[in-house]
C-alpha cells in the first residue's frame, strides 16, 4: 500500500507549500547530482587512460596541458579543409576519355535509315 505525502482529497495550504518546496528541491538535487557526476567523469576517464598508456610519451614534470579553444580548432579545421580542397588543382594531366566501341546491330545501322535509290 502506497502512502502519500499529502491527502489529495482534503488538502491544506501547508501541503501545497510542501509539494512546491520538495518538488523544486528534488529537481535541483537531480541536476546537481548530474553536475557532479559529469564533472568527475573526465577525471576518471583521464585516470584510466593514464594507467593504460603508461608506456606513452613521457611528459615533462610541471608541463601544463593547454586547452585548445574552439575558435582555434575551427581555424585549424578550416585551413585543413581549404588545403585539401585546393589539392584538386593539381591535375594528373592524363586524358581519360574512353573510346566506346559499338557492336554492329541492324537497329543502329545507317544504311537502313537512308532511302535506297531504286535501280532497274
Amino acid at each position: 500500500m502506497m502512502t502519500f505525502l499529502i491527502n489529495v482529497e482534503n488538502w491544506e495550504w501547508s501541503d501545497i507549500y510542501i509539494i512546491t518546496a520538495v518538488g523544486y528541491s528534488v529537481v535541483f538535487l537531480v541536476l546537481v547530482l548530474l553536475i557532479y557526476v559529469y564533472k568527475l567523469l573526465p577525471v576518471i576517464l583521464s585516470l584510466s587512460k593514464r594507467k593504460s598508456s603508461s608506456s606513452g610519451p613521457v611528459r615533462v614534470k610541471g608541463e601544463k596541458i593547454m586547452p585548445v579553444p574552439g575558435e582555434v580548432n575551427a581555424a585549424i579545421g578550416m585551413s585543413l579543409l581549404m588545403y585539401f580542397n585546393e589539392q584538386h588543382e593539381d591535375e594528373s594531366n592524363v586524358i581519360t576519355i574512353k573510346r566506346v566501341a559499338r557492336n554492329y546491330s541492324p537497329w543502329n545501322s545507317k544504311i537502313y535509315g537512308l532511302r535506297n535509290v531504286l535501280s532497274r
Binding site: 489529495v8 488538502w11 495550504w13 501545497i16 507549500y17 509539494i19 512546491t20 518538488g23 523544486y24 529537481v27 535541483f28 537531480v30 541536476l31 546537481v32 548530474l34 553536475i35 559529469y38 564533472k39
Partner: peptide, 29 residues
C-alpha cells in the same frame, strides 16, 4: 555541466504556477 543549474532554476515556473492554480480555485490534480 554547471549550466544545468539554470535548467533547474527555470522550473520555478512549474511550482509557481502550481501555487497560482490552487489560488485560482482549481482542483489539486
Amino acid at each position: 555541466p554547471k549550466l544545468m543549474l539554470l535548467g533547474a532554476a527555470a522550473q520555478i515556473g512549474v511550482f509557481g504556477t502550481f501555487i497560482g492554480a490552487m489560488a485560482l480555485g482549481f482542483e489539486i490534480h
